[in-house]
């Protein structure tokens, strides 16, 4: 009975004890743990890690290259913007210069036109004055002729009628009045 109980207890202990603490299975597990680790290390180092690093490096290079391209494009865009600004400034300066030149040119043309007009007017004025003078001379000549005619007429009448002094003065006065009247008509 006691022996049965001891055996049962031993069996119970054996069945409830932790199998991990059985020393007979330590040796090969130590060896194979280390060996398996290095086998996996070898496999990963030769087959997996290079493949992953290759992909990551390729992606890194691609990103780096894209960034460099983007940076280059940015620099080109900045340069283009600066060039455009310079061209705009140059165009603005040229436009201002052209406007200034046009302004000066127009002022010069205006001055020239004014001078030309002034000369033209002066010329026309002198022509007009000359024509007036000619007309005046002509009128004076005509007046002279009229006065001579009147004088001749008066002389003829004086001689013909043998007029008295009073009558003569009267006739002269009439002649002068006639001349004055004629002169007024000429002016």
């Amino acid at each position: 009975m006691i022996a049965t109980a001891v055996a049962a207890t031993a069996e119970h202990t054996a069945s409830s004890g932790m199998p991990q603490f059985e020393p007979s299975v330590f040796g090969h597990q130590i060896f194979w743990s280390i060996a398996s680790f290095f086998i996996l290390l070898y496999l990963l180092k030769t087959h997996v890690l290079p493949a992953i690093e290759k992909v990551l490096d390729a992606r890194g290079n691609k990103i780096r290259s894209d960034l460099e391209n983007a940076e280059q494009s940015r620099r080109l865009a900045e340069k283009a913007a600066i060039d455009t600004q310079k061209q705009l400034n140059a165009a603005r300066r040229m436009a201002e210069q052209t406007i200034e030149e046009a302004r000066l040119e127009s002022a010069r043309y205006r001055e020239m036109a004014r001078e030309s007009l002034s000369q033209e007017l002066a010329k026309k004025k002198s022509v007009a004055l000359a024509e007036i003078e000619t007309a005046k001379q002509k009128a004076m000549t005509e007046l002279h002729h009229v006065a001579v005619d009147i004088a001749m007429l008066a002389t003829e009448k004086l001689i013909a009628k043998n007029m008295t002094k009073t009558e003569t003065n009267k006739m002269v006065q009439e002649a002068i009045a006639a001349i004055q009247e004629h002169k007024g008509q000429v002016h």
Binding site: Q20, F21, V25, Q29, I30, S33, I34, F37
Partner: peptide, 8 residues
Amino acid sequence: QLIVTATF
């Protein structure tokens, strides 16, 4: 297995 974890 304690022996495995202990080995490492």
